[in-house]
Design a protein around this nucleic acid. Structure first.
Length: 600
RNA sequence: GGCCCCGUGGUGUAGUGGACUAACAUGCCACCCUGUCACGGUGGAGAUCGGGGGUUCGAAUCCCCCCGGGGUCGCCA
């Protein structure tokens, strides 16, 4: 026998009754009744109950009494209908069972360090150390399968649209202006290094010059920066690029791809269609972030004009110093206790705000017109008139019984803190439906942002992003006003994709590099290959790169991308499964011409 | 680099200065059990409470340092 299995455990149904089957898998659970032993046998396809009856086979029954959790076993027998009344509706295979007349233990197993057969919380470091066991669990198996289905859909979809998949190198050239690079020392060239790609950006643009026209790749990207729930040192992007297109083409492609992918792979999840489009300015104004969670409202409103003339020094001084006063309305939260308000205050202070002004609007429902000063609970009542409070409540769309949360300070801090508060309150009030994927496009980004520390212009996206045609003339006089042909796709508060129409002439590209502070030598050394390529008939082109880990995370309903990566790294960038990074032998270092520095 | 949370039998939790000789569930081991499916029953083994130091008559519990995991700000063109 070459194959140990004639069927998968999970596929057996009533129609198989009478068939002799060969199965193999892991012991999920054992129920030993003394004479009769039931084993739930598990393989990738599912679980089926197999029965060891000493009256059928005494030797099989003896072997089965030795079986324990996670033993690897092979069984053969006849598929039988379960006796009436003993069917198990919880199992897809619950109408049948396999009466075993031949079996073998292929391998034993130690008692696993955590439950494989139960969906209980286990400390993540333990799961990662024994990731191969963790991946046996239903949740991880489901996530791996979903990821496969998503990636397969992407490949099929893009193939049907005429894209071709091209691989680009993993050993490329360091580009220190972006994220920190992962470096690979060169054995053949002492003192020189390759870098792992932060993204295949320049290579895919060269593929456009090469006439590929429609390219994509499931691309591993590497960035040596600190991790987050949605950020890993290495991650996967659906990298794609097209020639002879404009921004609208990319957005249409994305919407078509993601909408049909969700409808195919996760039909139970809902979307807002067509995907809403917000300008960067609108997103920042109403959500305080360029990646808003649009599953709920609770929009931020600017209250500066209302309170500018008030006697409340916190508000007045913030505005006088060039700051803003903005707030949100937490519906129905007037009953918040002192303790809960203190908690929120602590939250905003940890984020860098000076404090949180809370205004409780009465205790029961009703029209805000009936509000009296006695019904308002807030430190602000001493300094702010009832009229101002009513105006703020109206501006925030508040009703009686609601809680206003107001932050004053520098615009950047105010936005960041209110974004956090909005998401926190949305979470507490369960406003974000987990079965909704609220995709949206963010457009009209500024091309450049001022780096205050360095006193220099930096690319908002990357230096290859084309400025809007009508703004090109502003590059010389007012760079901050130049809008880029840059777009993001966001979903549920997560940046899912970023892309742009690229510069495709060396003249304009050089101009941008110079604006970013590079001199001619630096431009030549770092980007000479790209600029030269542009002089050989580079077509207009643009593209986008959706993060695969993130979209799988959202579709799997997970909180971190580690749950959808087979072997993820910890927050401190270690791999607990294989214990990486690790020391290397002195001989390896010597071969690479490396000497370790003494760190103080 | 900053701030915050977590670490108690194999696993998940309870215990927040004395009654803890550390509890509960589950897992594990042994025996019993022919229809269970998170099988059931009886019995048993198993943690000096992440590590180190300190305070105290007394520390799982309070303080300090360290280690590990997580969240986040900075960082992520």
């Amino acid at each position: 026998m070459i194959l140990l299995k004639s069927h998968s455990c999970g596929e057996l149904r009533k129609k198989h009754v009478g068939a002799n089957v060969d199965l193999a898998g892991w012991v999920d659970r054992r129920r030993d009744h003394g004479r009769l032993i039931f084993i739930d046998l598990r393989d990738r396809g599912g679980i089926v109950q197999v029965v060891f009856n000493p009256e059928v086979s005494k030797s099989c029954h003896e072997i089965a009494s030795e079986m324990r959790s996670e033993y690897v076993v092979r069984v053969s027998g006849e598929v039988a209908p379960r006796p009436p009344g003993t069917e198990n509706p919880k199992l897809p295979t619950g109408d049948v069972e396999v009466i075993i007349d031949n079996t073998e233990i292929l391998n034993t197993s130690k008692t696993p360090p955590f439950y494989i057969n139960e969906d209980t919380e286990v400390e993540e470091s333990l799961r990662l150390k024994y990731r191969y066991l963790d991946l046996r669990r239903a949740r991880m198996k489901r996530n791996l399968l979903l990821r496969h289905q998503i990636v397969k859909f992407m490949r099929d979809f893009l193939d049907a649209q005429g894209f071709i998949e091209v691989e680009t190198p993993i050993l490329i050239k360091s580009t220190p202006e972006g994220a920190r690079d992962y470096l690979v020392p060169s054995r053949l060239y002492p003192g020189k290094f390759y870098a792992l790609p932060q993204s295949p950006q320049q290579l895919k643009q060269l593929l456009m010059v090469a006439g590929v026209e429609k390219y994509f790749q499931i691309a591993k990207c590497f960035r040596d920066e600190d991790t987050r729930a949605d950020r890993q040192p290495e991650f996967t992007q659906l990298d794609l690029e097209m020639s002879f297109i404009e921004e609208e083409d990319i957005l249409n492609l994305l919407e078509g791809l993601f909408a049909s992918m969700v409808e195919t792979v996760k039909p139970e999840m809902r979307m807002i269609k067509p995907f809403p489009r917000l300008t960067y300015a609108e997103a920042m104004e109403h959500y305080g972030t360029d990646k808003p969670d649009l599953r709920f409202g609770m929009e931020i409103r600017d209250l500066s004009d209302i309170v500018a003339q008030s006697d409340f020094s916190i508000f007045r001084s913030a505005i006088a110093e060039g700051g803003k006063v903005k707030g949100i309305c937490a519906p129905g939260c007037a009953s918040y206790t002192r303790h809960q308000l203190d908690e929120l205050n602590k939250l905003v202070q940890n984020l860098g705000a000076k404090g949180l002004v809370t205004i409780i609007l009465g205790t029961s429902g009703g029209s805000i017109n009936d509000l009296t000063l006695e019904m308002v609970k807030s430190v602000a009542t001493k300094f702010i008139t009832l009229d101002h409070i009513k105006q703020m409540a109206e501006c925030l769309g508040a009703n009686m019984g609601d809680l206003l949360l107001i932050i004053a300070g520098k615009p950047k801090i105010v936005d960041m803190v209110l974004d956090e508060l909005r998401r926190e309150m949305g979470h507490r009030l369960k406003l974000a439906d987990p079965n909704v994927l609220a995709f949206a496009f963010i457009v009209d980004f500024p091309l450049l942002a001022r780096n205050e520390e360095m006193g220099q212009w930096e690319s908002m996206h990357h230096p290859f992003t084309a400025p809007r045609d009508e703004d090109v003339s502003l590059l010389d006089v007012a760079p901050e006003k130049v809008r880029g042909k840059h777009y993001d796709m966001v979903c549920n508060g997560c940046e899912i994709a970023g892309g742009s129409i690229r510069i495709h002439t060396s003249h304009l590209q050089r101009k941008i590099f110079k604006l970013l502070g590079y001199n001619d030598d630096e431009i030549e050394e770092r980007f000479g290959h790209l600029l030269e390529a542009f002089d050989y008939g580079a077509p207009p082109h643009g593209g986008v790169a959706p993060g695969i880990d993130r979209i799988v995370m959202l579709m799997a309903g997970e909180e971190t991308i580690r749950e959808v990566i087979a072997f993820p790294k910890t927050q401190s960038a270690t791999d607990l499964t294989v214990n990486a990074p690790s020391s290397v032998a002195e001989e390896q270092l010597a071969e690479l011409h490396l000497l370790l520095r003494e760190e103080s």
